[in-house]
Nucleic acid binder design. Sequence first.
DNA 1: GGCGCATACGTGAGAAACTC
DNA 2: GAGTTTCTCACGTATGCGCC
Length: 365
Amino acid sequence: MSTLDQADVDVMKATKTCVAATRFQYDYLNDDITDDGKIDYSLTNKVPQALRQAIAEGKKILVLINPPYAAATNRGNTANVGNAEYKSGVAKTKLAATAMIDYGKASNELFTQFLARIAQEIPKATIATFSTLKYVTAPNFEKFRQNWKAEYLGGFVVHNKAFDGLTGKFPIGFLIWKTDQKAVNKIFTTEIVTEVIDKDAKAIGEKSFFNIPKNQFLSEWITRPKPNNVEAIPLKNAVSPATVTKDLRGKKWADGAIGGIDCAGNDLQHAEQHTVIFSSGYGSAGGFLITDKILWQVAIIFAVRRLIIPTWLNDCDQYLQPTEPLSDKFKNDCLIWMLFNRQNRSASANDLEWDNRKWSIVGLF
DNA sequence: GGCGCATACGTGAGAAACTC
DNA sequence: GAGTTTCTCACGTATGCGCC
């Protein structure tokens, strides 16, 4: 039994918790990792000899973990929106920096860093882990899923509010995997079925989570127009210019553009808050410009992203591209619905001030 | 350098539901 | 019936980091 903070080990010993276990402090993402991403126990000599021997002998090992979850962009939980601190450096652990070349953007997330180390250190381990579901569903984790060889044995998801001190509403999974990192062909499963437990710990049914290639995702349905050299005013609301000072987007127009859209993310979590039409570029990440050629597709994307009610359980479900021809009636319905939706923030205005200049925008919707 | 994904998942007001 | 808690709705930021 290991934990990052020595204080936790001290408390366990003082309170006689898990007396039979060997309890030790260990930094799983930084300790005993060589500069080329290999495991070398002699670097710290913290891992108990018996465990090293069991690993070396290839004994059956069950890894039970509740790793920290943190992606590179989480705000600190106690900070206010807008003044929050961001968790920089998440991808700078020794493990992420040296041993996760094959895992793509999963190196941005702490809990997948743990899984990556286990895959190298104990390649045939059975792993039972708490975590969010994005490593099963999200596009950023496609490369992780291609390289992490695991068979799903079972598990449940529970409302995050069942854990103390968390905000938001999303599922946390406890999933059990039989890994075999040395297998030649075995790849990540395409569907997992979980039991669903609500925040009062009541079983309320089942839910499937799907691993689908991201080229089938709605976010890749249209070719996003390339910006041209015409300057545009970046917006954050109908007539409010963006105020960010770093990584400002939406400063260029595109050939044939009639507006912009904030369309960040491909899941329900983002769709609710990041589906907005503007009369210029969107000043943050996740936007693109709307041209007359793609308007019909934008209307469909807009409608489906806003029509499905977000819940705690469908939080990380992904939107998919249509697989059958769409009727003109459906296309027109989506367009009308978009035009009258409150998230259509297109507008006409003169004398907007940004970058020490005056700007005009024209609402074409 | 630009783009795209992602956030142990933002806030406040008012309504509705619950408790005593 | 009054006080308290939970739910619903309508608004919201901007940045770290991998990849092209």
